[in-house]
Amino acid sequence: MNYKEKLLEVRDLHKAYTKEGVPTKALNGITFDVLNGEYLGIMGASGSGKTTLLNCIATVIKPTSGQILLSGVNISSFDGGKLAEYRGNKIGYLFQDFALLDNLTGRENILLPLSIHNMDISTAEKKLNDIAGFLGITDVLSKFPAQMSGGQKQRVAAARSLISNPDIILADEPTGALDTKAARLLMEKLQEINQKHGRTILMVTHDPNAASFCSRILFIQDGVIFHELRRKIPNETREEFYARILQVMAQMGGGSANVL
């Protein structure tokens, strides 16, 4: 894995909301890099600004100031067609609530990003079958989301985020709505995608278990980076990493009760 090349650079990112005249700072000058092929986790308490950060990277919201560079290109300057192109091809987004269109079948949901960009079907079909096989969702492709389990839905959503070969996958609490078993299966698949296929993943989570699959974790508090953890690869086991994560969480706020 090539960890040297910077894929994503976040530089002095600020985001302030003004509600009824009262300004609230969600991000307060955050700076970090995501290297190519990295599996980066972002953890923090509710309101720490982690989802705001992810949404800024996904261009769902505009930062107040600062820069976000993907492969050296400033995405804040995008608009119109370039923005749509970025959203469709450069990033894959995995939502906590899956965000599948419930009136489309699994196959139609997965192919949607390609449809939107008018891609060729012949190459897409093979890719769809490969991804579906890998994620174990071949038999639900012709079903509607209502006919799938939570885990299946999230894996269909994962397949959708992978179909257009994005540079980076942004995952927002992907295990948040899943039971333990489904959450574990999804995390294993994401890890495989990261390790075997070298796909860069940026995941926001408050679940230490899910975070233990990452190679590096940034802890955010009050809009700034508070701490950083790196998994000692290949020596450190996941269980050991998990224990260290819990330690940091305890330091941050006297226990998980404050973090969650």
Partner: peptide, 23 residues
């Protein structure tokens, strides 16, 4: 129509539009 028009299935929001109507 939504399921069978393979050629058009990757064309814009064609399938989505049909599915919305279908629903």
């Amino acid at each position: 129509a939504a399921a069978s028009m393979k050629r058009k299935a990757t064309h814009g929001l064609y399938v989505f539009t049909l599915r919305q109507l279908h629903e």
